[in-house]
Design a protein around this nucleic acid. Structure first.
Length: 156
DNA sequence: GCCAACGTTGGC
DNA sequence: GCCAACGTTGGC
C-alpha cells in the first residue's frame, strides 16, 4: 500500500465538501501538471491512503485522510470548453489528463498547519515542506503518514 | 534543443 | 496583493 498527499483549495473544493458528497466520494479532476498526473495515472491503487491538504487557506494545513476507491481514468472535464480546466489538446480519443476517485476517511478535529508540521521531526524530508514545492499530488512516506496520524490522534 | 517570456502556484 | 519558485510555450 502506498501513501499520498493531495492538495485542494478549500474555496474550490474543501474536505467539508467531500464529506457532503454522495458516498463521501469524488473524482479528483482538474490536475493539469504532468508529474502529478503520472502519479495518479500510473501509481495509485485502490486502497492507497491519502492525506488531504488545504492550500491557500488560513492556515494552510493537512485536514484529514481519504483512500483511493477508483483507479485512473480520463479527466473528462478537460473536454468541456466551459470548464475552468478545459484543455483543447485533450480528447476522448487521446486523453491527456487523468484522475482517480477518492473517498473520505477522516476529518481531523483540528487542521494540522504547516507551522505545526514543521515541528515534527519525522517530517523533515517531506515533499510538502520543501521550499518551492508546488506539486499538487505527491507521494508520502509511510513514516510521514503515520506521524501525521499520530498528531491527529492526540487531538482526541 | 536552448532559453526568454509568460503563466501558475501558493506561502506570507 | 506580492512575489519567489516552478512549469510550459514557442521562436530561433
Amino acid at each position: 500500500m502506498k501513501y499520498w498527499l493531495m492538495k485542494t483549495e478549500p474555496s474550490e473544493f474543501s474536505i467539508q465538501d467531500l464529506a457532503k458528497a454522495k458516498k463521501k466520494t469524488t473524482h479528483w479532476d482538474g490536475v493539469r501538471n504532468y508529474q502529478a498526473r503520472n502519479f495518479m495515472r500510473d501509481d495509485m491503487r485502490i486502497g492507497d491512503r491519502v492525506l488531504l491538504y488545504h492550500s491557500n487557506a488560513d492556515p494552510s494545513a493537512v485536514v484529514g485522510t481519504a483512500k483511493i476507491v477508483k483507479e485512473s481514468y480520463p479527466d473528462f472535464t478537460a473536454w468541456d470548453p466551459k470548464d475552468k480546466h478545459f484543455d483543447p489538446k485533450s480528447s476522448a480519443e487521446n486523453p491527456r489528463w487523468f484522475m482517480v476517485d477518492i473517498q473520505l476517511d477522516e476529518i481531523f478535529l483540528e487542521p494540522i498547519s504547516l507551522a505545526d508540521l514543521r515541528k515534527v521531526a519525522a517530517l523533515k524530508e517531506m515533499e510538502l515542506l520543501r521550499k518551492g514545492s508546488r506539486l499538487s499530488v505527491q507521494p508520502v512516506r509511510k513514516k510521514e503518514f503515520d506521524a501525521i496520524q499520530r498528531v491527529a490522534a492526540k487531538q482526541k
